[in-house]
Design a protein around this nucleic acid. Structure first.
Length: 216
DNA sequence: TGTAGGATAGCCT
DNA sequence: GGCTATCCTACAA
């Protein structure tokens, strides 16, 4: 990959089954052309998939289980937006979480970006998170990476298929390097192995009780 | 190295 | 009024 010739992934990349997109996003680059002029690039090393047939999905109750019809109500309806749209929301009143909407428009799905490995803009990232000592404290964890990359609600519902915030091709990750586990921080849907991460990568978020990168 | 508790705000019941 | 796709600090061992 050439840092001087970054091409955004097109909407068609996200117009696929959510699990496929979550797996395929590993190794891709998250790029933020920051308003200050600094370009921030991170290699994605951890994702989670959320689907409309999933009790952990925000928009779960918007779908009528009998008819499959969707009620266009509330914030969660933005998860049914066109593929490649940003779904950014405030969690626990403090942290912005970055998702990219998947599946065709009208079908609910999104991938949560949980951790990246810095590729460019390291000084900027460190300045945003001055207390980070170990790698995963800098950009490992969905709340940490949005602080480091200065991503917040202003990107909600914006297309992630063009600057200033987008994904680039990066470098593929082989199946041998990929591990799965239950998603982190949920009370429902914990039986599904819909968290994808790069094995033994130091930037993968530790999760609760130091479960960093452990498969189950 | 590990666990416990608290901060904080929008959304839903 | 309860819950939440989190993180940080304090404190024990």
């Amino acid at each position: 990959m050439d840092l001087n010739n970054l091409v955004p992934l097109p909407a068609s990349f996200f117009d696929r089954p959510t699990l496929e997109v979550a797996r395929d996003l590993l190794g891709r680059w998250l790029v933020h052309e920051h308003p200050s002029g600094v370009r921030l690039v991170g290699r994605i090393v951890e994702t989670e998939a959320y689907r409309q047939d999933d009790p952990a999905f925000h928009g779960w109750r918007l779908v009528d289980p009998a008819t499959g019809r969707v009620r266009p109500e509330g914030r969660a309806y933005d998860l049914f937006a066109p593929p490649g749209t940003a779904y950014v929301y405030l969690n626990y009143g403090m942290y912005w979480l970055l998702n990219v909407v998947t599946e065709p428009e009208g079908v609910g799905g999104a991938v949560l970006i949980r951790a990246v490995e810095p590729v460019a803009g390291l000084d900027f990232l460190k300045a945003r998170r001055p207390k980070a000592r170990r790698p995963h404290e800098l950009t490992g964890g969905p709340g940490r990476l949005t602080v480091a990359f200065d991503i917040d609600g202003r990107y909600h519902r914006k297309p992630l298929t063009a600057p200033p915030l987008y994904f680039a091709a990066g470098e593929p990750v082989s199946d041998a390097e990929v591990a799965t586990s239950p998603r982190i921080g949920l009370s429902r849907g914990t039986d599904r192995l819909w968290r994808f991460f790069v094995r033994a990568n130091p930037y993968v978020s530790p999760g609760p009780r130091g479960e960093r990168g452990r498969e189950r």
